[in-house]
Design a protein around this nucleic acid. Sequence first.
DNA 1: TTGAAAGCGCTAACAG
DNA 2: CTGTTAGCGCTTTCAA
Lengths: 342, 342
Amino acid sequence: MSDIGIKELARIAGVSTASVSRALSNPERVSKKMRDRVQAAAKRVGYQPNRLGASLRTSRSGNIVAIIPDISDTFNSGVIQSLERAAAERGYSVLFGDTQGIRERELVYGAMVRSRQADGIIVFSHRLPFTAEELQSENFKLPPLVNSCELADSPHIDTSNLPWVSIDNVQAGRDAVTHLIELGHQNIAVITGDIESPSTVQRLEGYRLALSAAGIAYREENVYQGAYTLEAGVRITKQVLLAKHRPSAIFCMSDEMAMGCVATLKEHGFGVPEDMSVVGFDDIRFAQYLSPPLTTIAQPVEAIGRTCANILIDLIEDIAEPESKHILPHKLVVRSSATTPR
Amino acid sequence: MSDIGIKELARIAGVSTASVSRALSNPERVSKKMRDRVQAAAKRVGYQPNRLGASLRTSRSGNIVAIIPDISDTFNSGVIQSLERAAAERGYSVLFGDTQGIRERELVYGAMVRSRQADGIIVFSHRLPFTAEELQSENFKLPPLVNSCELADSPHIDTSNLPWVSIDNVQAGRDAVTHLIELGHQNIAVITGDIESPSTVQRLEGYRLALSAAGIAYREENVYQGAYTLEAGVRITKQVLLAKHRPSAIFCMSDEMAMGCVATLKEHGFGVPEDMSVVGFDDIRFAQYLSPPLTTIAQPVEAIGRTCANILIDLIEDIAEPESKHILPHKLVVRSSATTPR
DNA sequence: TTGAAAGCGCTAACAG
DNA sequence: CTGTTAGCGCTTTCAA
């Protein structure tokens, strides 16, 4: 049970190291007798292959890195949870990089593929984790990479052609706002996520479309630029309450923002939904337990994580087209935070 | 900028591979001239050392694995966030293992040190990620490991001697309950976390001590066995409401449980805190934005993660005593979910 | 201070 | 089907 290498095990089993390697990694390419013999010996002495040796030889680390701006965001942590599980099922481990949006840290994680610590990257941030210099360089080749639709365009590369997985954010934004319109709201504010994020831009487009389809004029002053955080929800909601033509409903582009929004409304004496309707986005675990339970757009968190992992691994293992796009279904979940305006 | 190895770089710089290695990894052991020359060449061609080669040679992967039952738990994700950051500052990456409490997955992650994919382990689960067989084996040596005070005793090893970092859970539990007693509560229910978890056992002990110090009889039926999840909070709270001698206050051993508890109370028409006081534990990000804002015990999330990382790395790099214990400070945060009973 | 060379543990040609 | 052997890219003696 002490630390034994392949040589030692080969000696013990009375076979060559090549046979040990084969019997353990490609059992089908070896006789049953050999297989049993080696596997028995391996088990007996508690042989655990050194993956570093194998990785060096094969140039495959078996790791993928997930670049995430903020793991403590509830939506993100749900995605990474399913991502990790799906990766594990295919024999990959995930190195995770919480960047807090810091460019330097993004670059560090982006470099992990080049330094062979990882075989591919899943990007949940807005920027590619490579320097402009790298991107412009002729012999720079993008490593296997999938983006979860938060990746903005880059001046140096057409990010829209990279593999991605996402919901239909335009339609989802439209669904949320249409719901409010159907309840009778005409004056609807929206608090956006980070404005560089494609998901925000798309959801905002959905907001526009919903308004326009209902013949309601789009008014610039109803669009509040925020960020996908609870704190932003708190901060911006105060601004909304200050508005000259105060809206009767607020569409928040994340549930965390909606939490902050609702808390702030209550703090200022506004009942939700009696005085102000609120619709969120994500359907995080907590949404149904808030008071009031949050009406929101549900994202298929589990599927997003799983799909990201699987596409990336397909890419790494060369069994996927390099431009796979996956649109996953979303769903409006009606609870109690939005109602007919008074 | 294409992929260049150390040999090629050595050739380009006109020096030996040994010098390249030294100039890059131990610049102080090389002349200034050599250093500049190599570093310039490395920069020019965009040399990125292959960590696999280095790792194989040095038997150091530069990774640590964090074994976590549930990353989407808000408290856990906060800890892992700071853990990752602290690890990164010391040049380590974190592989994370979300086990969902599944034994098999724990073992997979536990094996990563033996297979050299990682240099040490941080354990947030109840069990050591090793089989009984392994633990009993004579020449089994525990890898560098720190536990965040969730590790239960093992029949095969004295886990209490392993390095750990934690708050003083006994005192924290006592503080929470004392607060309720000082408000005037006499009949206080407690909803526990997973009963195998030392943190739960300790907090329960604190509950006992607080009662006893106030001369209040400890009553078995006021102790509800739960789990640190929102769903458990929901489920158990219903049981509490069914109690013959209904308590006037509930101490929940996590904020997520408290969220579920408060939601359930409201759903059944109980005002919080008018009809029922609730105290939580953790002070997760959301606690202050719930309605009512949650009175809770704040854990130093950032410090816990950072300390775990630093102790583990000290252990790996042989610069720490193997039995370091760290008690971090907690704090009662009084908000609005607990008040004087009617 | 620098270079030559061995070797970390494994896999994959290649030969038998 | 199995064994021999070279070598993945790096670090680290050892000698100069």
